[in-house]
């Protein structure tokens, strides 16, 4: 099992913690995928310390500035990700998890399907299957 965690802000510590706490199990590989809007994940990773605190292997990758959902789908296929997790950085007036352009492009992408779960601090796409 492997999990992609999309980070679009370095202030998503609680989302990453929720994902590592309740979604990911020890021994899995986690791919932190940084959007260009999130500068330098060093302090965030340092604070969370995924290997020591959660027993997971991890890598940090970066999506190009003008990436589209196909780039992400290609990355997910390449690493055979079983989950994609997106931190909830904002909520609508009615309390729903705010969906930004990046999240919308993933949710509506034809090539990725599975289950969508909305957690306290993260949107989790799991049981992923990849199409064309």
């Amino acid at each position: 099992m492997s999990t992609i965690i999309i980070i679009d802000s370095v202030e998503e510590e609680s989302a990453v913690e929720e994902i590592l706490d309740s979604i990911v199990t020890a021994g899995e590989t986690v791919y932190f995928l940084r959007l260009s809007s999130a500068r330098g994940l060093g302090p965030l990773i340092q604070a969370i310390n995924p290997m020591l605190n959660y027993g997971v292997e991890y890598t940090i990758d970066c999506l190009p500035e003008n990436y589209d959902a196909s780039d992400l789908a290609a990355f997910a296929v390449e690493v055979d990700a079983s989950r994609i997790c997106i931190g909830i950085s904002e909520r609508t007036l009615t309390g729903k998890a705010r969906i930004d352009d990046a999240t919308q492009s993933i949710l509506l992408h034809d090539g990725i399907s599975g289950d969508l779960v909305v957690g306290e601090d993260a949107i989790i796409l799991e049981e992923l299957e990849y199409g064309q």
């Binding site: 309390g95 729903k96 998890a97 705010r98 969906i99 999240t103 949710l107 509506l108 909305v118 949107i123």
Partner: peptide, 19 residues
């Protein structure tokens, strides 16, 4: 649903979701 709406209206913008 999004696909049906996009077909009719050209585009839609997702704003939020909850379970």
């Amino acid at each position: 649903v999004a696909s049906a709406v996009e077909e009719e209206y050209g585009s839609l913008e997702l704003l939020g979701t909850t379970q």
